[in-house]
Structure formats: structure tokens, C-alpha cells
């Protein structure tokens, strides 16, 4: 599964990349929000982990753009933030984040949250596939019904 990391802090980036690769994910790193958006548009990512505070484009704006994009597949978005106040959480969720991981983070906590994200992405993919199949079956039925004598 492909994950995009957006963080302007080099040590955080390095730690996240190292954990994620160890856990078997395919990782792309971006050094700020604008860089992340550019990479997102070029790639096919299932999960995005983004720092909240970044230069050029912050994490909320990045996630807003991801949600507004016309990409067919669901992207699971995790905001990585040192902020812990409730209003920030609401603001982040409002922007479209699925989950939060606080900084400093625990590797194990990140791993289980990613697993949860992965499950949701897979469910979304399965659902999308089922919808596609349903639509195809519907179309076949419709075509059969539209046929003369059908």
C-alpha cells in the first residue's frame, strides 16, 4: 500500500519513513504541504500522513485539497500534530482528516492506527468494486430489458 508522508521536520520524516518501510508500506516523502500536493497529484496514494504545521501549505489545507479532488479512490488521511486541544481536533476533522496522531508519537500507536486506516481503505475499495459490479450488472439488465422482445 502506498503512503505519502508530508512533514517539514527532517527527523520526523526520517523516523516515519523508516517505520513505514519496515512495516511493508511503499513510502513517498514530501518536505512541505505544497510538495506533498504536487506528489499526491502525480501518485496513487491510499494513505496520507501529514504534519499539521508546515510552511507553504499546512496539513489542513493539504487534506482539504485531497478531499476536494476528483480522485476515485478513498484516501485515508492522518494528521500528525503536537496540538492536543479539542478545537484543533474538530478543525482537523472538519477539514477531512480521518484520524490524529500526536507528536511525539509511539511507533506502536502509529502502527495500529495505520492498520485501522488500511482496513477502511480496503473496505472502501471493496465497496467501490461492489458498486462497480452492481452498476455493470444493472447496465446489463437494463440493456437486456431494452432489447426488442426483452
Amino acid at each position: 500500500m502506498k503512503i505519502l508522508i508530508a512533514d517539514d521536520d527532517p527527523v520526523s520524516r526520517r523516523l516515519l519513513q523508516s517505520y513505514l518501510q519496515k512495516w511493508g508500506y511503499e513510502v513517498t516523502v514530501a518536505v512541505n504541504g505544497a510538495d506533498a500536493w504536487q506528489r499526491f497529484e502525480q501518485g496513487d496514494f491510499s494513505i496520507v500522513i501529514s504534519d499539521w504545521m508546515m510552511p507553504e501549505m499546512d496539513g489542513r489545507e493539504l487534506i482539504r485539497r485531497i478531499r476536494a479532488s476528483t480522485r476515485p479512490n478513498y484516501v485515508y488521511a492522518i494528521l500528525l500534530t503536537s496540538r492536543s486541544q479539542k478545537e484543533d481536533l474538530v478543525e482537523g476533522m472538519d477539514a477531512g482528516a480521518d484520524d490524529f496522531v500526536g507528536k511525539p508519537f509511539l511507533a506502536e500507536e502509529l502502527r495500529v492506527r495505520l492498520r485501522a486506516g488500511e482496513r477502511i481503505v480496503k473496505l472502501e475499495q471493496a465497496l467501490a468494486e461492489q458498486n462497480r459490479e452492481l452498476r455493470a450488472a444493472q447496465e446489463s439488465l437494463q440493456k437486456a430489458a431494452d432489447r426488442p422482445g426483452g
Partner: peptide
Amino acid sequence: GDLTAVQNLEVSPKLRKLYGYLVD
């Protein structure tokens, strides 16, 4: 080859909020 830094240091669970506050 694992790196430990401020961002991923594990401290005792009851001190995590204090640690987070000091980092914050």
C-alpha cells in the same frame, strides 16, 4: 539501525502527557 529521537521516545505512560507538553 533504528533511530530514536524526541519525536519517538517512549516514556512511562503516566509521564507521556508531561513529556508531550514539554516538547510542545
